[in-house]
Amino acid sequence: MGQHNNDQKESFSLQNRFTAYLLIALKRKKRDYLQKKSRIETYEFTTDPLSVQFAGSPDNRMSPAVSQIEDDALMQALAQLTARERYILFQRVLYGSEYDDLAADLNSRYGSIATAYHRTIKKLRKKLQGGRK
């Protein structure tokens, strides 16, 4: 019986070691995979940004306004922003939301929302000027 117990204990500890080993490998792979994916998302954009980028966005209210945009350069610049940046931008520009409301909405602080908004505007300007050369 004692022997059997020891065997079982050893097997469990082996399984624990294997699980720990596997978990580390999984975490690394996942990190690499996500990094690669986000890199691809940053540098490449789909030919139809509307269908992909905005379909899954948390706020679908922005869609009608966005579909009115006919400027391709602006469309591409918008597609390159992150979902959070786009959300802040649209809420601020199209619906005139206050930073305070947005901060509460996104679980963030006034300052970081304001900074994010101004950076987004700056980014858009830079991209649009770059495209106009």
């Binding site: 596997l22 490998a25 999984l26 996942k30 995979y33």
Partner: peptide, 14 residues
């Protein structure tokens, strides 16, 4: 799904 497949390969390697 792609990530799942990658992780399955990792399991096999492990």
């Amino acid at each position: 799904e792609d990530l799942y497949q990658e992780l399955c390969i990792i399991l096999l390697n492990c």
